[in-house]
Design a protein around this nucleic acid. Structure first.
Lengths: 227, 227
DNA sequence: CGATTTCTTGACTATTTGGTCAAAGCAGAG
DNA sequence: CTCTGCTTTGACCAAATAGTCAAGAAATCG
């Protein structure tokens, strides 16, 4: 230990501010910069996935030097985890909001609309997940098998009850949920393809509503009991 | 030009055997190795995308030295393009096979079943596309805007006619196609998530049939005209 | 203000990665 | 067998990339 070593030190554990479960509450600057970083990282990871993205890319997008970025998140992996965690909540919320006491068709209509709106407003979040899943869910695998699984089973129970009461056509509840996920995510993840096929009309006003209308028509009429 | 230069040369253009539009027909060894490489590359690119994959990974998977692999495809990009092109045909075939003269419900049922079967049998191909699209379709962008677009418009016309004849419920044809793509691809691309949520039952015999049944039920009942 | 802590960065390192090359090994036509 | 062209690879290189470090700049607090 030399004289210099003791001169600058008050940060008792680790060098990074609040390094993963840190205690001290973040500075104003920390809060701002962490958010800037997460925003930038989301855009980058969403396009190229974890392995295909570089810290330099994220730093450039965050308009920040690489060492500075690594001051807030020590490793590329830490940024990735942070972005994923920051988005997971949003992801579950709509499904969690399905109300067993509500009207089945109305609840599902609302759910689909909400997911479609999220796909349109936060496509990067959707693509981030898609990349993570495609890569084999190395980071959120646990989450999928525990929290997500539990939530899906719970809501599947609700749907199953609805079916039993004759308020929905007989349908496998889990596959129904998958179908809704698939279709709503498609418009975020495969946006480029949608645009390529449909051309300029995608940017036209009302396209979102038109899409929601079409999807709802297909899915809802399929689960609405016939008379 | 020195003596050595002239000593070894019979391959009049380029160093790589049949380098992209080459003329000479491939050797037996060439045919074998190219296929081995494409198979290996498909698996690797499908998981990590173009940027996230390394030539070394592909070479290892192909059980081949890196220089040897690069003897057959000079650049990483060339391998990628080759894999994509080799898969594009398979991708279009089912949609192209929709028969305007057939029974609407039957044609769409067959189409969905075919796509689901492909998702189960060749998930890597599906994931390769997903990665390419997520990355912004840098390579197949043109293809999407020309061939795919034309095919979709053509088949949309067929569906629109069916709707006009009252043989299908009123539905936006293009969004119907997107919905089918979305759902069928979901089971390939998000396989990890499906497994996480459903657990061991995914591996059980008959799961594929059960899935097909559920999806068909949701989509078909949605487009079948009511009486 | 002065002292202390937080923030920022240029310069640097070790490793990974795409790609090259010369030379050695091999297959097949004659 | 022999000879030619095809195939394979160890060794190598330059660029990219994750991450480090020490020192300077800016806040913050008394």
């Amino acid at each position: 230990m030399d004289a210099k070593a003791g001169a600058r030190r008050k940060n008792e554990a680790g060098d990074t501010p609040n390094p993963e479960g840190g205690e001290r509450q973040p500075t104003r600057i920390q809060a701002i910069n962490r958010e800037i970083i997460l925003d930038a990282a989301l855009e980058v990871f969403a396009v190229h996935g974890f392995r295909g993205s570089t810290v330099d890319q994220i730093a450039a997008r965050a308009d920040m030097s690489k060492p500075n970025l690594l001051y807030y998140y020590r490793r590329k992996q830490d940024i990735y985890r942070a972005v994923l965690e920051a988005t997971l909540g949003d992801w579950l919320a709509p499904l969690a909001a399905i109300d067993p006491a509500g009207d089945p068709i109305e609840e599902l209509r609302r759910y689909i609309s909400l997911k479609l709106a999220m796909s349109a407003e936060k496509p990067a979040a959707s693509r981030l997940f898609a990349n993570e899943i495609l890569a084999g869910a190395p980071v959120i695998g646990d989450f999928l098998e525990t929290r997500l699984r539990a939530l899906v089973q719970e809501k599947a129970g609700v749907i199953r009850r609805w079916v039993g009461e004759g308020r929905l056509a007989p349908v496998d509840p889990v596959h129904l949920i998958f179908t809704i996920w698939a279709v709503t995510q498609h418009y975020a993840d495969f946006d480029v393809q949608v645009k390529a096929v449909l051309g300029s009309q995608v940017d036209a006003a009302g396209f979102r509503e038109q899409t929601a209308q079409a999807v709802l028509s297909i899915v809802l009429n399929g689960i609405r009991p016939r008379r």
